[in-house]
């Protein structure tokens, strides 16, 4: 789980900055009145937090099993 969370995090952040660096036009447009670029940022915030919770829960289970 540690490796999965780490790879997912790095892929997300690298992907985002990759888009900003090389293809910012991909962020053009809107979905239901929301700018796509803003939706992407909000999704990243949510994913970052979700991965944090996922890792903390899995670590708690791992430690519980070890005991």
């Amino acid at each position: 789980m540690t490796r999965f969370c780490l790879i997912l995090l790095l892929a997300l952040v690298a992907g985002y900055y990759g888009v900003i660096a090389f293809a910012p036009a991909l962020l053009t447009g809107s979905v239901a009145g929301w700018p796509l670029s803003i939706l992407v940022v909000l999704a990243l915030f949510a994913l970052g937090f979700a991965i944090t919770v996922l890792y903390a829960c899995s670590a708690a289970k791992r430690n519980g099993a070890a005991r």
Binding site: T2, C5, L6, L9, L12, V13, Y16, Y17, I20, S37, I38, V41, L44, F45, G48, F49, I51, T52, Y55, A56, A59
Partner: peptide, 23 residues
């Protein structure tokens, strides 16, 4: 939007901090 670009990098440091260093 530039401000949001700064926020994303800053926020992603936190889960990395948890996984790599905190505990």
């Amino acid at each position: 939007y530039d401000s949001a670009v700064y926020a994303v990098g800053t926020l992603f440091g936190w889960p990395l901090l948890l996984i790599l260093l905190a505990e």
